[in-house]
Simulated assay, not measured.
Amino acid sequence: MGTDNSAGARIGVDVPDARGRVELDREGRDLVRNARVRILGVEVLASDWHVLRKTTYEYTRLDGSRSIEHRETYDRGNGATVLLYDLEHRTVLLVRQFRYPAYVNDHADGMLLEAPAGLLDEDDPATAIRREAEEETGVTIGSLEHVLTAYMSPGSVTEVLYFYAAPYTDADRSGRGGGLRSDGEDLEVTELRFDDALAGIRRGDIVDAKTIMLLQWAALEGPFASGS
């Protein structure tokens, strides 16, 4: 995927890829924030939708010796997620969807229960998660609380995920949800008792990391924490 057949031109580097992008090999070349790391080269391996790069760098180890390292990084952009909760009825609103990577890696059917989430695209995190929550669950978010920010798989994926929480009531459910069919989304909106959702983590019914993190935050220091 990294090379075009026309005179050796490289897709996403010398000529536009499917999304019109070029010079994707420039990402990271100018990094100088860490004096122990010197970037030597960046190669685009694939850019069909998101971007897979192979970066070569010189790394100064703790003992002062230097080594040449190679790392593949998957750049899918940054994202945001939200835990929608109804404090009065002690419920949370999740979505169930098919996840092929989980399916191919031993999950029974690939159908995962998750907190609503999506990529930022060109929006700020709060705007993006309001958009995604409405598309996926039909809920129009009012007040929104930032919970935390985390790198979800820093060994290989560049994504930063912004975590939020927001209350909802029946009055906030202005649409059907289910995601955008034009984007290939096919989501089942699922309302669960909060205690059942927590138990679902222990049973292995909820195995999505961002959802587990939000549910445990809600139990430990969020809206369902004892004494809150």
Results as ranks from 00 to 15, higher is better:
residue 45 L to H: 02
residue 70 H to Q: 14
residue 86 D to E: 09
residue 15 V to Y: 01
residue 90 R to G: 01
residue 54 K to M: 13
residue 55 T to Y: 08
residue 111 M to W: 00
residue 99 R to L: 15
residue 83 L to S: 04
residue 45 L to T: 06
residue 29 R to D: 08
residue 21 R to K: 04
residue 109 D to Y: 09
residue 70 H to M: 12
residue 93 L to S: 03
residue 108 A to P: 04
residue 47 S to Y: 02
residue 78 N to A: 09
residue 100 Y to W: 04
residue 50 H to I: 00
residue 19 R to V: 06
residue 122 E to N: 13
residue 77 G to S: 06
residue 103 Y to F: 13
residue 26 R to A: 14
residue 34 N to W: 08
residue 67 S to E: 15
residue 59 Y to M: 06
residue 29 R to C: 13
residue 125 P to Y: 03
residue 52 L to N: 12
residue 38 R to I: 03
residue 105 N to F: 10
residue 115 A to K: 04
residue 111 M to P: 07
residue 118 G to N: 05
residue 99 R to M: 15
residue 117 A to R: 07
residue 11 I to D: 02
residue 75 D to F: 11
residue 55 T to S: 14
residue 94 L to G: 05
residue 52 L to A: 14
residue 89 H to D: 13
residue 71 R to A: 12
residue 86 D to S: 06
residue 8 G to D: 01
residue 89 H to I: 03
residue 2 G to R: 05
residue 68 I to Q: 09
residue 38 R to K: 12
residue 74 Y to M: 13
residue 81 T to R: 01
residue 98 F to G: 11
residue 75 D to S: 13
residue 51 V to A: 08
residue 89 H to S: 12
residue 12 G to T: 04
residue 117 A to H: 07
residue 105 N to M: 13
residue 31 L to T: 10
residue 82 V to T: 09
residue 9 A to H: 05
residue 72 E to K: 15
residue 69 E to N: 03
residue 55 T to L: 11
residue 118 G to V: 04
residue 119 L to Y: 05
residue 93 L to P: 00
residue 24 L to H: 01
residue 3 T to Q: 06
residue 80 A to V: 14
residue 24 L to I: 02
residue 6 S to R: 10
residue 103 Y to K: 12
residue 5 N to K: 12
residue 84 L to I: 01
residue 66 R to V: 15
residue 96 R to V: 12
residue 119 L to V: 14
residue 81 T to G: 01
residue 54 K to W: 08
residue 115 A to W: 01
residue 87 L to A: 15
residue 71 R to C: 13
residue 39 I to Y: 04
residue 24 L to M: 05
residue 51 V to N: 10
residue 91 T to W: 06
residue 112 L to P: 10
residue 32 V to G: 05
residue 58 E to P: 03
residue 9 A to M: 07
residue 105 N to D: 08
residue 125 P to G: 04
residue 23 E to C: 08
residue 111 M to Y: 00
residue 39 I to G: 05
residue 110 G to T: 08
residue 53 R to D: 02
residue 88 E to Q: 14
residue 36 R to L: 07
residue 111 M to D: 05
residue 103 Y to T: 07
residue 101 P to S: 07
residue 27 E to S: 14
residue 76 R to Q: 14
residue 10 R to D: 04
residue 33 R to M: 14
residue 9 A to Q: 06
residue 35 A to P: 15
residue 30 D to F: 05
residue 80 A to D: 06
residue 110 G to M: 09
residue 48 D to L: 15
residue 117 A to F: 07
residue 102 A to M: 11
residue 14 D to I: 02
residue 33 R to L: 14
residue 49 W to T: 11
